[in-house]
Design a protein around this nucleic acid. Structure first.
Lengths: 152, 152
DNA sequence: TTTCTTGCAAAGTCTTTGCAAGGTG
DNA sequence: CACCTTGCAAAGACTTTGCAAGAAA
C-alpha cells in the first residue's frame, strides 16, 4: 500500500517545486492508482477521468501526464503500436519488469524477472557503453489466443 | 555481401506477389542499403531519396516502407522518441541484435549478443505466454558522452 | 494577490488516403 | 492492355500550444 503515491504525497511534492494540487491532477492520479495493472493511453485516461469530472479537457491530461512522469510517478511505455502509454511507477520494480505483448489480442502483462545485470556489465566491458536503463518487450501469443480462441 | 537484398532479388520477390519494381522503390532500396548501419525515419529516407530523385513524393516513401517491411527487407524500430525508424533486415541477425541508445547524444548502436532463449522458455513455462519475438533496448551513455564531451 | 492551471480551440506533427495520371509487366 | 503505382493534396490521428478566465497557495 504505502509504496504507492498518495494524494498527500503528490501535494507535497508538487508544492516543493512550486506547483499546485488541482482537482484535475488529483482526479488523474486517482484514475492511475485505480488502474495500476493497466497501461493506459492518454485518451484512455481522459475517458476515465471524464467519467468523474466531465468538465476536464484533454489538454489537461496531456499536460499532466508528462508532469507526473517527470516527478517519477509514471513510466512512459511504448508498445510499438503508435500510442504512448503510462504505467504507475513502483520504485521496487523499476528495471526489473518486462512486458509480454500478445500480437493477436493486444493483451499486455508483465513479468518480474530480471537477468540483465550480467549482460549490462558485459556490454560495458566490451563496448564501453554505460548502460543506465533498459526496455525489454516480448511479443507472442497469450494463453487465451493459443487455445484456439481466435475472436476478432 | 550476399546476405543483403539486391535490386534483382527485390524485383523477383515483388513480382512473385504481383507487385512491380518501380524506380522509386529501387531508389528507396538503394538508400536503405547505403545506410545499413543507420536507423532512418521515413522523413530521413525521403530526404535522402529526394537527392537522387527529386520528384518522389513522401507518400510513396510512406507506402514503400511498410511494403518492404512485410516482405522482410526491413525491421521497424521504435526508439521511444516518437519516430518510426527502419533498419535493413539481416536474416542472420534477426532476434539477436539489440540497440544501445545514448540518452545524451542520441547515438544508436547495436550489439549482437543474445541470451534470451533461456528466459523465453522460462516465461512460457511459468506464464503460458508463447514468445515469438522480442525487443531489447539499452539506454545509457556512449563512450564519447562519458569522456566529458558534453557538446549540446 | 500572485502565480500556476485550466478549457477551448487552433495549430503542429507525423502518417494515411483518395484520385486521376502515368508506368510496369 | 490491365493493373499496379505515383504525386499531390486533403484528411486523419495524436499531441502541443496560445490565451483569457479561474483557482490554489
Amino acid at each position: 500500500m504505502s509504496q504507492n503515491k498518495s494524494a498527500y504525497e503528490l501535494k507535497e511534492q508538487l508544492n516543493t517545486v512550486g506547483y499546485k494540487l488541482t482537482p484535475q491532477r488529483k482526479a488523474i492520479l486517482d484514475i492511475l492508482l485505480e488502474n495500476q495493472c493497466k497501461h493506459l493511453t492518454c485518451e484512455d485516461i481522459y475517458t476515465l477521468v471524464r467519467a468523474k469530472m466531465p468538465s476536464i479537457g484533454i489538454a489537461t491530461v496531456y499536460r499532466t501526464l508528462p508532469l507526473f512522469e517527470k516527478m517519477g510517478y509514471l513510466n512512459r511505455v511504448h508498445l510499438d503500436d503508435g500510442y504512448v502509454r503510462y504505467e504507475v511507477c513502483d520504485n521496487k520494480e523499476a528495471h526489473s519488469h518486462h512486458h509480454l505483448i500478445c500480437t493477436q489480442c493486444g493483451a499486455l502483462s508483465e513479468i518480474q524477472v530480471d537477468m540483465l545485470e550480467e549482460l549490462e556489465k558485459q556490454i560495458q566491458t566490451t563496448t564501453g557503453f554505460m548502460v543506465t536503463d533498459h526496455s525489454v518487450k516480448f511479443y507472442g501469443l497469450c494463453k487465451n489466443c493459443q487455445s484456439g480462441d481466435t475472436k476478432p
